[in-house]
Amino acid sequence: MSENGEQPGAREGVERMALAADRVPGRAPMSTRRSFRRRVAGSVGWTVAALALVVIGVPTVWLVYGVVARAVPYWTWSVLTQPGAGASGGLENEILGTLLLVVGVVVLAGGVGVLSGIYLAEYASGRWGNLLRGGSEVLAGIPSIVLGYVGYIVLVVDFGWGFSLAAGLIVLSAMTVPYVAKSTELALRQVPTSFREGADALGMREGYSLLRISLRAALPGITTGLLVAIAIAMGETAPLLYTAGFTGSLPSLALTHKPVPFLTYAVWTFYNQPSNYAVHLSYDAALILVALVVALIVAARLVVVWTQRHADRRGGV
């Protein structure tokens, strides 16, 4: 114990106990300096994690509260049933336009993205696969305003589609396909090999087992990707300004030559209009967006819980 002579008394006691315990084979010391350090590191970790939660949680609550508090006092249900462009009427045209865009993105980006993800997970290997994955990541990294502008020049002007549903959908889908593809690929890779082996051993054809076993097991992950795509489709403004345009009347199902109104447009422009009515409408639009996003997340969770009711692990969204 002489090597510990310089240590302060209390510490020396701990040290001595630790060393004594060390001599008993198979018995770990109850308290050592290292365990103290571990406790400190542990509480620091918990504190940082708690702070991070606060940093995320507080602004979220504050933001939702801000929207609700400003929208609810002036809320009238006619907002949902009347079209308009800010100064009068409601948000029916923007709501329907946004829903139209969301459905379109789910079909277009969902279809292309899921198929790409299947290809990446099952067939694209080696350098070719990495090239595709890299390309997909680059696409995800392009600023939305750039995609919007390219869409404007190519689709709206060159192709002569004008502000239209097709132009908006294609640009939104180009933005969201990488997320859907990535989440599909990752989810498929996480399907246990034993499922696949079981399907092979039963003589299921590749496509059949992919559809009935693998994709089903991968559904929670794919849904996560789709939710990101939907959230982007609902929340994006910049690329839609260039491609979807705006109209005060109800959107049509025509793919080209008819502009599509959308909620974020109302949030962004009505707020700047010189009329209290339009400002209130912009808060209403924000509230409706929040409500739609929450409703979609809940619906997606329910779908996942239902389809995964036989899974051994519950998939989260």
Binding site: F195, E197, G198, A201, G203, M204, R205, S209, R216, A217
Partner: peptide, 25 residues
């Protein structure tokens, strides 16, 4: 047919598991 070291039922109901191959073929 094949049986593996670890039981590997599919993530579907018990009845659907029995029927998995029956339906596939």
């Amino acid at each position: 047919g094949m049986l593996f070291q670890r039981p590997n039922p599919f993530p579907m109901s018990i009845a659907d598991n029995v029927l998995a191959g029956v339906r596939a073929h």
